[in-house]
Design a binder for these strands. Structure first.
Lengths: 321, 321
DNA sequence: TTGAAAGCGATACCAA
DNA sequence: TTGGTATCGCTTTCAA
């Protein structure tokens, strides 16, 4: 670069990195800085991390489906928290690629840590990442993966809370909405399983209700509501709750008298519905906690992978059930 | 790497890149590939792009606020479309950094193209990026920036459509909700300005209504609704519409008889409200179009920056106004 | 058909 | 206090 500023590149490096090991005269520093500014010099991250043998990049796959405010906020907090620890968070757009192929694509960037939501990464993928220099691989999903740290976020508990709550309210024939939208199975399946688990052995029944997120589908489901004979429904989340509750009301089904409705995610919109929506609130780990875990793992990559159950769920009782 | 597979690294490179310039014997290819698999070898993107002098990385700043389904979908389509053209999309988590500082941070990664939503990037930032090798800088915002391609998405038209519609409906005292949430000014200010522009010279009045996205704030606003004397309100988007409409109804204000309500973004929830929400639908450019623009710009970086007006807005009339 | 070697940009050691 | 130089991993040209 600006060794046209009259000095060697080594000097440039010293100045721009405020190296304290060597001392550079003030005039030289100024000359270098000025030259850098004039030329619009920006260091080359690839060259730097090639030389250094490591980077401060934390890689996450970009979510492949429209994501709600809860997750948005989580990512955001995480970015801020990791930024404070001087990491750079990068969301990598992995289109349709899966598993090992995705892991290899990520590994090419030689991130210092990889955070993977969901269950798209297997032990082989983890191995690829670690061999390529990732000092921490953290999965955020329902189960631990060999070799990786895990933040166990089993959506099971969400369904479990909802199911237990409805049972306590005296409901015995419980429907569970399962979104037809692709990409959501990772959340919907455990939520359904959680309801089943909560009701196992109680004699209450659980009916799976596939539902697309559009009015027509909701109306059709509502139309056969009597025939289904359900006295409660857990709707996967608040948005599906709004959709279904509207359809039920339009079909003349009284909520909560004839059918209780419970959503999840505790979105603002639930409070605005009438009746006000009972919902399951999720306690996600704070961005700062996760950032701290990542940092610890990076500093001591040899440590045994930690696994933490981090998702709490609690019912917020309002009017719909 | 696996020159422990008995060959030179040159050969490895040839094999793994399917170089057609040179011919490698089939047995050698097999040996190399097997060794690569066994060792879990993954090429080092930094080294590669350092040597090549360029990358296929398209960089976007990660949004700093919870983002709705419309934008989510847009990003997603874009990622898919650019992926088809063999680019890799990376969302860079720029915490609180702004302007030139952000531009420099991005430039360090030497992306081949940079897409910047909003108006956070000035001509200096563009210059930094281009000097550091970005072959295309595209802004997605209200105005063109010197040196960059622009997809002009002036939210002005959203407000304009809403204002004109309400005026056509005979409304003359029009409120405009402006979210208090930080990070949304980039959208809310032009939407407000659009309403003003649509009504300029008509004698209709425009009243700015700052509103936080919570129930209390909405209730307080609704409580002084009579005193405000408005006969219509454009609520920035559908979510604020839901919030305010609920508060108005709870306060006994009849919608649309006393006050018309118009939202924006055409979210599903608007259809589920009663009265059904009139809204402004946004026509964003498809991911494929934007991807094509990026690709063209990358192929011919010398070409004059293009500027396209790409945002259309149309009112979807339902029941609320 | 394969190997040797230069070079991309930044850093860190050693010598001047 | 500074400059020269080896090095990181990979691609590519030239030679063998």
């Amino acid at each position: 670069m600006a060794r046209l500023a009259g000095v060697s590149r080594a000097t440039v490096s010293y100045v721009l990195n405020n190296a304290d090991a060597v001392r550079i005269s003030e005039p030289t520093r100024r000359r270098v800085r000025e030259a850098a500014r004039e030329l619009g010099y920006v260091p080359h991250a690839a060259a730097r991390s090639l030389r250094a043998g490591h980077s401060r990049m934390v890689l996450m796959p970009a979510p492949a489906f429209p994501v709600g405010p809860v997750y948005s906020q989580f990512i955001n907090d995480l970015q801020v928290a990791l930024g404070r620890l001087d990491y750079t968070v990068v969301q990598y757009g992995t289109v349709g690629v899966h598993d090992d192929e995705a892991a290899r694509a990520w590994a090419e960037l030689r991130p210092v840590a990889v955070l993977v939501p969901g269950s798209g990464l297997g032990p082989r993928g983890v191995a690829v990442l670690k061999r390529s220099g990732a000092r921490a691989v953290v999965t955020l999903g329902p189960e631990t993966v060999e070799g990786a740290h895990a933040l166990l976020m089993d959506h099971d508990v969400v369904g479990h809370s909802a199911g237990a709550h409805l049972f306590d309210q005296g409901r015995r024939r419980i429907g569970v909405v399962v979104p037809r939208e692709p990409g959501l199975e990772a959340f919907s399946a455990p939520r359904l399983a959680g309801v089943r688990a909560a009701l196992r052995g109680t004699g209450a029944t659980v009916t799976e209700l596939p539902l697309a997120h559009d009015e027509g589908a909701a109306a059709r489901l509502a139309a056969r509501w009597c025939e289904l004979g359900l006295d409660a429904v857990f709707t996967y989340n608040d948005e599906y709750a709004m959709l279904l509750m509207r359809a039920l009301q339009d079909a003349g089904v009284r909520v909560p008298e004839e059918t209780a409705v419970v959503g999840a995610d505790n979105l603002m919109l639930g409070r605005l519905l009438r009746p006000r929506l009972t919902t399951v609130h999720l306690d996600l780990p704070s961005g700062a906690e996760l950032a701290a875990l990542v940092d610890r793992a990076v500093r001591d990559p040899a440590a045994a992978p930690e696994a933490h159950k981090v998702m709490g769920a609690s019912v917020i009782r309002r009017e719909s059930g």
